[in-house]
Design a protein around this nucleic acid. Structure first.
Lengths: 147, 147
DNA sequence: GTATTGTTGACCAACATAGTCTACAATAAT
DNA sequence: ATTATTGTAGACTATGTTGGTCAACAATAC
């Protein structure tokens, strides 16, 4: 029951963009460095996000990537879906056809509850929320030194 | 974000045992047939469940496997844990040491919420509950023919 | 003792994951 | 125009996980 690195790294990359929203293009290289993701791998992760219209890119000197829409309009479930596919513990919760026993399978009902719970959480959080949380964490870290 | 076949098949196998609780040993072969799992694979799945004391087995003719304790005392999170490992979307939610950035990582908080939600659901459901649901489903299916 | 059952461990094919590397395309600055 | 700088695309690969198979073995009811 694990989330792949794609979804996690992608979320972190977008968080980085959200933290620098309004500051113009951010270099992939800088995202890679700050979020500790290999640049080559990040390039692959960013592609579907660009294709989906979450991220805008400009090439050449002074280029880079930036959020293509406000951080409050991007929800985590969207990011995970784009990078990891359907947020579902098993295929059969998406299509009944995936398994002949779907109709009379009690376990399947449980897997569906799991999916709903996960989706509810992920769709309730926007990149803006995530960025706010991150900022709060860092500020709190800072105050720690004064205790 | 998927549940492996191990956890799912294992759950189904135990459901089958719960449905036949008190009827003596059930053949692995019969479980395999009814739940559509290959026998050889089921053998591997049942082993950790026996080791953990959820299932009791007897060899030889008239042998088979049965629940080692009442179905109300077996929770789904236990089954999934035994077969799939920790119910966690990422390792870092279990041990902070897994990642140096854990302390100041907002995404990690989200993954922890996910884990909690999943665990809450799975630990709230016992094998007994699952069996009751299954019976209800089959009875309902049965009535359908009279419409 | 023999047929029947579970137990164990070696093995394996296919796929997913998590990348690397190279060549290429666009563009800003000169 | 040239060049340096950026993202884009695709081929390639190493490793691990998944979902098994198969054969030998151990226990036990009859």
């Amino acid at each position: 029951m694990r989330l792949s690195t794609r979804g996690r790294y992608g979320t972190r990359a977008l968080l980085e963009l959200a933290l620098h929203q309004g500051e113009g293009p951010v270099l992939l290289r800088d995202i890679a460095r700050k979020q500790e993701i290999s640049l080559s791998y990040l390039e692959h992760l960013i592609t579907p996000l660009i294709a989906a219209g979450l991220v805008a890119s400009t090439r050449g000197p002074k280029g880079g990537v930036m959020l293509a829409k406000p951080a409050e309009e991007i929800r985590l479930n969207e990011i995970i879906y784009l990078l990891d596919g359907p947020i579902a513990p098993v295929e059969c919760v998406n299509s009944k056809k995936a398994c002949a026993r779907s109709e009379k399978c009690a376990p399947r009902d449980i897997w569906q509850e799991l999916r709903k719970a996960m989706n509810d959480i992920l769709s309730s959080i926007t990149l803006k929320d995530l960025a706010s949380r991150q900022i709060a964490k860092e500020e709190f870290e800072g105050t720690m030194y004064y205790i």
